[in-house]
Nucleic acid binder design. Structure first.
Lengths: 113, 113
DNA sequence: AACATATACATAGACAACATATGTATATAA
DNA sequence: TTATATACATATGTTGTCTATGTATATGTT
């Protein structure tokens, strides 16, 4: 990643799982571009961070893969397994708690609701 | 730290600087208790994380120290230097950006305003 | 009196995450 | 022809935090 330094450490898995929850199936390069788009270029997800994270999530049984060849280039699609959906829900709640606590600690106005 | 896993990685310096911006001077143990109180025990700041972080911030010139003896026990008070105040402002803005981007990526409703 | 817990500092070593750098390969734009 | 975009992957290094350990005093419990 880049720019905002290492604040995103620890959130990468949550981000990946959440994107896959919203998109059904995605391939690695697509994820990097999606993240870049959503954050307007402020977060640049590097291959050295992404691919090991994907492999780990797959090894843990949270992701399933299928490959396609497009324009003579390989695409490895990832999608959430059932366990992956559970893990995603869990990590999302955890992230919400994290954000609230961080806002409290930094004295930032928290979400109204 | 504990509980919410390693989500807080990368935010510790920002948290410390911000607490010192709000409290003028604090000692290490006090910081751990303050964090525990604010997060209702969800974030437990460990000495192995806190003290190295304080030493690093001091070495970088962001913190100044003074010692006092209370009840025969040493207290090492930390306070923000001028550079520390600047750094705090910078890191706070960075943290706000981070939270917004994270909320966007996780499809969580961001702060209204 | 003995023991555990709270207060208060500190460091050594392990681990995990992410960054940097590098590698392969095809397609397209300049 | 060269650079950039697409698309995968891994080896190595750095860094932050955690675990564990150490010292020492004060207080609360049994």
């Amino acid at each position: 990643m880049a720019m905002s330094s290492d604040l995103f450490k620890g959130t990468l898995q949550t981000i990946i799982l959440n994107l896959l929850a919203q998109n059904e199936k995605m391939y690695g390069y697509e994820i990097t571009q999606k993240v870049k788009l959503i954050t307007q270029g402020e977060l640049l997800l590097k291959e050295g961070a992404l691919y090991p994270a994907l492999h780990k999530l797959e090894a843990e049984g949270f992701l399933e893969t299928s490959t396609e060849v497009v324009d003579n280039r390989l695409r490895k699609y990832y999608s959430l397994s059932q366990n992956g959906e559970k893990e995603m829900s869990y990590k999302l709640e955890e992230a919400k708690e994290f954000i609230l606590n961080l806002q409290l600690l930094l004295n930032i106005k928290p979400n109204l609701a």
